[in-house]
């Protein structure tokens, strides 16, 4: 799913090598020009992997951070359900599913702790993920390619000739 820089002839290794030699203002420019479109791609892809309401909430929390070395796709860092529950609370259950009889520790209204069953809230377990990871697998090549092109064009514009 992800791309190694150490495999032979990795395009990201080429980019990383070039980035090392660029002045920091050019690197910053590349980052800021990549972030917006990459975030759009990421959210778009996430939305295509949404099947339930909870997965929709996870998809809405999608974000992208860009540094000079790497791009990180994120989900579940922010946002909340309409009940006020942070998306982070339901993130892993939603992404990987949960057995219906999995116990969830709960505290009753009167303060007595008990365990309730997860039920059908998250659907069955799937180790490969349901929303975030499949979306990442589908979009990483596209974002990486976009990154390389942005870097090339920005450098060409900024320093005229590479």
């Amino acid at each position: 799913m992800r791309i190694s820089l150490l495999v032979n002839g990795s395009p990201l290794a080429v980019l990383a090598t070039v980035m090392r030699g660029l002045p920091s203002d050019v690197k910053r420019e590349i980052g800021s020009r990549t972030r917006g479109p990459a975030a759009d791609m990421w959210r778009d892809e996430l939305n295509q992997h949404v099947e339930t309401r909870l997965q929709g909430a996870v998809a809405r929390s999608g974000a992208v951070s860009v540094t000079a070395r790497n791009i990180t796709l994120k989900a579940g860092a922010a946002g909340a359900l309409s009940s006020g529950t942070p998306v982070g609370d339901i993130l892993y259950g939603t992404e990987f599913g949960m057995r219906a009889d999995a116990p969830i520790e709960t505290v009753s209204r009167k303060g007595k702790p008990y365990k309730r069953r997860a039920g059908a809230a998250f659907g069955p377990r799937r180790r490969s993920g349901k929303t975030v990871f499949p979306a990442a697998g589908a979009v990483i090549a596209r974002i990486a390619s976009f990154w390389v092109q942005t870097a090339y064009r920005t450098t060409a514009e900024k320093i005229e000739r590479l």
Binding site: R2, L73, K74, G88, V132, W147
Partner: peptide, 13 residues
């Protein structure tokens, strides 16, 4: 709330 899912696109940058 657990930490968010973060997937860097480069494995070993």
């Amino acid at each position: 709330a657990r930490k968010p899912i973060e997937i860097p696109i480069g494995v070993d940058a």
